[in-house]
Design a protein around this nucleic acid. Sequence first.
DNA 1: AAATATAAAAATGTATACATTTTATAGCAT
DNA 2: ATGCTATAAAATGTATACATTTTTATATTT
Lengths: 213, 213
Amino acid sequence: MTKQPAQQLYMQIKLDIRDNKLPIGEPLKQQALSERYQVSRIPIRDVLQRLKNEGWLKVSGKRGVMVPALNATEAEDLYMMRMYLEPLLIEYASGKISQQDLGKAADFLVAIDENPNLSIQEHGELNWQFHACLYAVAERQTLFETVSSLHQQCGRYIGFHTKDLDYKSTSQEEHYAMLQALRERDTALAKQILRVHISQAGEQLTQYLQNSN
Amino acid sequence: MTKQPAQQLYMQIKLDIRDNKLPIGEPLKQQALSERYQVSRIPIRDVLQRLKNEGWLKVSGKRGVMVPALNATEAEDLYMMRMYLEPLLIEYASGKISQQDLGKAADFLVAIDENPNLSIQEHGELNWQFHACLYAVAERQTLFETVSSLHQQCGRYIGFHTKDLDYKSTSQEEHYAMLQALRERDTALAKQILRVHISQAGEQLTQYLQNSN
DNA sequence: AAATATAAAAATGTATACATTTTATAGCAT
DNA sequence: ATGCTATAAAATGTATACATTTTTATATTT
């Protein structure tokens, strides 16, 4: 999945969106992008369609796509959906989780703790891997894919609430608490911790976005 | 949105998937499709990517896409997610719903009642329009889009449980009951009816799929 | 006969060229 | 001036041609 030549283009455009290198709100021209990234319009079109489906681009009018402005309501919706769906994966996973699964999950948490100055992206990636490796145990592919998609869509927003210094430690405490609950087979508690975990992240984010407007 | 030349191709391939005109489980060859539909590989590629993102095609191994077999677990996941998310849209909509909104929704139900021999597709379309026109009132774009996407993904499965003669009338009763609850501003009841409505459809479907295996 | 290396074929990815559709502009009429 | 039509420009959609990768088949060696 990392060998396609267009993969590099995909990553680059995604970075440029994240770093506001592309104009917000106005339609992207295929030709302009083609010249900017020194490839033909064909891979540009592929990447635009892909990013549109991942929520990083939206249709602009009837034709073309644009970089949408960050939006508190969207963030609220995304985190709300995650709050309802991710506990379901924990529910399905709970009966199947092995010691080995718990160990692998804990490793990601340790990796976060041991590297205090990870970039926001690196931190976000480890954070997701922690959650995803537990969700995978559930073996509910369709549910997992929707949750993954929601997480992807959150990608543009991550980095605002995680700037908060307190956030990282609180977040880690909740992670460990959830692991402990799973170890003790207290599914209800694990789900509850997760709900609060997601809900808090969402609220912190939406408050930040509302203040910055 | 219906003017692109590829739109026709998209519709045709979708129909062919639904009607099992394309091989299940084996990778689709772009060239073969190109010859079959008498277009070049470029629009084929576009349509394949689009259908992949709508859940009608899945990646096959590392390369290419395939028509996945219908799967009870997938149906279960899809309906479960809808069961959790769609009531949220009703919740947001409930305070804002006008008499006009209710009237428009009722029109769709009447259209179903008045045409007893609609095709499965036509019935499904009217059914969705009923739900969607209420959800739109909520003005939660992101949540709405995810729910729409889930509904799209259910597309291949619709037509199995709706074959049941009882289903249509039971379904309509629930629709009218939900409208009535909304009219009386009983949000909790409306949500509850919707949950049951979706849950029953999902159960009927998964039971059918499990029996047919 | 099994395994591996190598060449041929097939399939996908990308560039260029062309066609079609949209959008902008200029000229004309009201 | 304002609005409308016709024309030009620009943007997207699609076909063909080429490049690269992947797969398959064949031949050779152990």
